[in-house]
C-alpha cells in the first residue's frame, strides 16, 4: 500500500478524472474536466475517438476544464476536423471565460463551433 496526498492529483492514467461520456438529447456528450495538457491529451483523445465513432452529433463540454494547453488544442482541432469531414454536427461548450476559452481564443478557434452553454449548443446542432 502506498499513497500520496496534497495538492492536485498527479496524472496516473486514470482517464475518468479527465473525461466522461453520456448522452444529451440525441447527441453524444463528452465532458472534459481538470487540466488537459501534453501529459494526458493523447490518451484522452484515444478514448474520445473510440467512443464517438458511431455518434451522429457530438457535444464537447469544457466548462470545468481548469487548464488547456496546445496539446489539448491540437486534440480538439483534430476531433472537430474529423467530425466536420463526416458531416457530423459538433459544438465545444466553453463558458464565457476561463482557461479553456482563453486558450481556444488565443488559437483563434472559429467562433461558430464554440457555445457558452449546453442547451444552446444542443439547440444549434439539433435542427
Amino acid at each position: 500500500m502506498e499513497f500520496t496526498r496534497g495538492g492536485l492529483p498527479v496524472p496516473t492514467g486514470q482517464l475518468e478524472r479527465w473525461v466522461t461520456f453520456s448522452r444529451f438529447g440525441d447527441a453524444e456528450l463528452v465532458s472534459l474536466s481538470g487540466e488537459i495538457d501534453l501529459a494526458n491529451a493523447p490518451e484522452i483523445g484515444k478514448a474520445i475517438v473510440e467512443r464517438i465513432q458511431k455518434a451522429g452529433k457530438v457535444l464537447i463540454d469544457l466548462t470545468t476544464v481548469s487548464f488547456l494547453d496546445s496539446a489539448g488544442v491540437r486534440l480538439l482541432d483534430a476531433l472537430i476536423g474529423d467530425l466536420n469531414e463526416h458531416g457530423k454536427p459538433t459544438r465545444l461548450v466553453v463558458g464565457e471565460s476561463g482557461a479553456a476559452r482563453m486558450t481556444l481564443q488565443l488559437c483563434a478557434f472559429r467562433e461558430d463551433v464554440l457555445a457558452t452553454d449546453l442547451d444552446r449548443a444542443a439547440a444549434e446542432i439539433g435542427g
Binding site: D37, L38, F67, L68, D69, S70, A71, G98, A99, M102, T103, L106
Partner: peptide, 13 residues
C-alpha cells in the same frame, strides 16, 4: 494567472 500558467507550460513542453 491563466496566461502565465499557459505560457509557462508551453515553454516547458
Amino acid at each position: 494567472r491563466d496566461a502565465v500558467l499557459l505560457a509557462c507550460s508551453e515553454a516547458v513542453a
